[in-house]
Simulated assay, not measured.
Amino acid sequence: MISKRTDIRLANEAWESLMTAYSRLSSDFGSEPIWNDANMREYDVLYTLAKRDEPMRLCDVQSGVLLSQPALSRMVDRLVTRGLLERETDPHDGRAVLVRLSEEGKRVQRELGRAHGRDIGEALRVLEPEELTELKRLTQKLIEAREADAPAQD
């Protein structure tokens, strides 16, 4: 029988391994020569907007990126200034602002996405297809558990 102490230790070891892999892969991806039009953090914002393919509130964008609200606000300002994002008033709430990809933002996201996707495929080639499927299943299970525990937002 596994003790509670072993469970906690194993959970921490698994978390450390996941974070180490993430850190090393992110560092490797960030050093690729593809990041001319946007850096990796900016790309995360562009990608999050592209996945939804509709204008989003900043709080919704924030749920898809690893940035604090103030850092995301500053980044959105820069991306708007550079012509990669556009702001618009929320038609359902005149006090709220939505952001969306501009045509240039869509182009940059597509080009970076293709190159970044190739880099990811190359980095994960060490895993068999069954292992990739299992990795996806396990991480999705963690995401779904956190979403189920999250308080409802209005």
Score class of each variant (00 low, 15 high):
V80S: 02
A38P: 06
L25H: 09
P55M: 07
A38G: 04
T20Q: 11
Q62D: 06
T81F: 09
G30W: 01
E42R: 11
L18Y: 09
S23A: 14
S27I: 03
N36Q: 13
L49E: 07
E42L: 00
D53A: 15
D60M: 10
W35D: 05
E32A: 15
V65D: 08
N39D: 15
I34N: 05
R24D: 10
L66I: 11
M56D: 02
S73K: 10
S31A: 14
V45N: 01
S73P: 01
L58R: 13
G64N: 06
N36H: 12
Q62S: 12
S68K: 03
L46C: 05
R74T: 10
A50T: 08
L66Q: 15
S26N: 15
N39G: 11
L46R: 06
V45E: 02
R78E: 13
L66G: 15
D53W: 02
T48G: 11
S68Y: 02
E54V: 10
L49A: 07
L25M: 14
N36E: 14
L49C: 08
L72S: 00
D77K: 11
R24S: 09
Q69Y: 13
L72A: 00
L49Y: 04
R78F: 04
N36P: 00
G64A: 07
M75A: 00
P33Q: 09
A38Q: 06
A50I: 01
D60L: 10
R24V: 09
S17P: 00
V80K: 04
Y22E: 12
S63V: 07
L58T: 08
G30A: 03
S68F: 00
D60S: 11
E54K: 15
P55R: 04
T20W: 05
A71V: 04
S68I: 03
S68R: 02
A50R: 14
M19I: 10
P70C: 03
S17T: 12
V45D: 03
E42Y: 00
L58C: 03
S73Y: 03
